[in-house]
């Protein structure tokens, strides 16, 4: 480990000196106590039954709405998705019915693609309906509505010499912009933004909204919750309601197998071909 750290230190001490940041791309902005609606959309998914070539997943797409600092609405749509191999292809069946097209060929990853599609669909519907509202997405890219801002919790953006751009900007601004809210323009519609002066984090934000000062000021107001300073609270809230917990997955797994049994089908034979890793993991934790 020591060798690796020595090698890495060179990059931080020598290579990073070569990074050039364009000062004209830095901007400060003010928080504004936004009175309008702000909505956050997120999705969660997980496999509740894995029979190797027959996989059932659960997908949850949720939305929360806030106005004047208070939650005014929340809603979660739940789907079960069956992915099943047939004739060298995968058939998808959603309950409740929804028409989606998936291209990913890995049967245990299809639920992520389906979640992505359903999430986009909800965002587009809401953006159309709530034209004056700000809609926050949890990191989905290439969203076209002007009133949507997508906030990425993680980013692989890098400087020319290969350092994390967000990491570098965070370090670069820690003294100079200590008590300021700032954003850095990467390209048109693509920004790195700090939403709270006391936060250790900044995020990549993509939006087609041109009035970014107002947009970021409003998001900054909703990023003042001390549970997670600097991250928009509505996104935290919607994440909580769509997250698929392990106990929920287990409950659904038992229910599925029970219902199947009532139909004369025993799913356990197929499931046993896939769960040995999980069993060993659980034993190791004990």
């Amino acid at each position: 480990m020591e060798k690796i750290i020595k090698y890495l230190s060179k990059y931080y001490t020598e290579e990073d000196k070569k990074i050039e940041i364009d000062p004209s791309k830095f901007h400060t902005y003010e928080m504004n106590k936004y009175d309008g609606k702000i909505l956050a959309v997120d999705g969660g998914s997980g496999i509740v039954f894995d029979g190797g070539s027959r996989v059932i997943s659960k997908i949850k797409i949720g939305v929360v709405e806030y106005a004047k600092g208070k939650m005014t609405k929340q809603d979660v749509k739940k789907y079960f998705m069956l992915a099943i191999w047939k004739n060298d292809g995968i058939i998808i069946k959603l309950d409740p019915d929804e028409q989606i097209t998936l291209s990913n060929k890995k049967i245990d990853e299809l639920q992520n693609d389906a979640r992505d599609i359903l999430e986009r669909k909800m965002i587009n519907e809401i953006a159309e309906k709530e034209k004056d509202a700000i809609i926050l997405s949890d990191g989905l890219q290439n969203l076209s509505p002007r009133n949507v801002a997508s906030i990425c919790k993680t980013s692989r953006l890098k400087t020319k010499n290969g350092r994390s751009l967000i990491g570098y900007l965070n370090e670069f601004t820690k003294d100079k912009y200590k008590d300021k809210l700032w954003y850095y323009t990467i390209s048109e519609g693509e920004y790195i933004v700090k939403f709270h002066t006391r936060s250790k984090f900044c995020y990549k934000v993509t939006t087609k909204n041109k009035e970014v000062n107002n947009l970021f000021g409003a998001i900054a107001y909703y990023s003042t919750d001390p549970e997670i300073l600097g991250y928009p609270y509505p996104l935290l809230k919607v994440d909580k309601i769509v997250r698929l917990r392990e106990d929920e997955k287990q409950f659904d797994n038992h229910k599925l197998k029970l219902l199947a049994k009532q139909e004369g089908v025993n799913l356990e034979f197929d499931e046993n071909s896939m769960i040995m890793h999980d069993l060993l993991d659980k034993r190791a934790y004990r």
């Binding site: 002066t197 003042t224 001390p226 609270y233 509505p234």
Partner: peptide, 8 residues
């Protein structure tokens, strides 16, 4: 002195 708001 810093802005905090506890939502919900």
């Amino acid at each position: 002195e810093i802005d905090y708001n506890i939502f919900d």
